[in-house]
């Protein structure tokens, strides 16, 4: 028997997975390369949300992983651990955000270069142009 917390939890996970599915669908099926790049950023952002969910705790007096007491003893550390969220998933996320930005910059520059070469960003038209070029050579 599921309580109200579990029902909400299932609903939230389904929404997250649906977001990921939409992003993957756009990444595969939409023809424009800039649309593909935007869908890739959405996919990465949804994975950050998944990581944040894995580290979260569903209780009310909950605090971030930053200790405000700078000269702690054993009792204050135990109290802090009883309220804090998990610090490991955000650590893995921080570098991912910045690296994702740099990779998106690389992809956007490559897309502009592709437009200079082929005159279009539609992958189907690019495939047709490549086929014509190959046919003309033979």
């Amino acid at each position: 028997m599921m309580g109200i917390g579990e029902v909400f939890w299932l609903y939230i996970w389904l929404i997250i997975m649906a977001n990921m599915g939409l992003a993957i669908y756009g990444l595969i099926m939409r023809p424009n390369i800039l649309k593909k790049i935007a869908c890739l950023t959405v996919l990465a952002d949804t994975s950050f949300i998944v990581l944040a969910f894995i580290g979260y705790r569903f209780k009310y007096p909950v605090s971030p992983y930053i200790m405000t007491n700078w000269a702690p003893n054993n009792a204050t550390i135990t109290h802090f651990i009883s309220e804090s969220v998990d610090p490991l998933p955000p650590t893995l996320t921080i570098t991912a955000v910045v690296i994702n930005l740099s990779i998106t910059i690389l992809l956007v520059f490559l897309a502009i270069r592709l437009y200079e070469v082929y005159g279009t960003l539609d992958v189907k038209k690019i495939a047709m142009i490549k086929k014509e070029l190959r046919g003309g050579e033979k």
Partner: peptide, 13 residues
């Protein structure tokens, strides 16, 4: 976000 930081009782947010 400012209102939520009052709700979470944490000035770090």
């Amino acid at each position: 976000m400012v209102i939520l930081s009052v709700y979470f009782r944490s000035y770090l947010l």
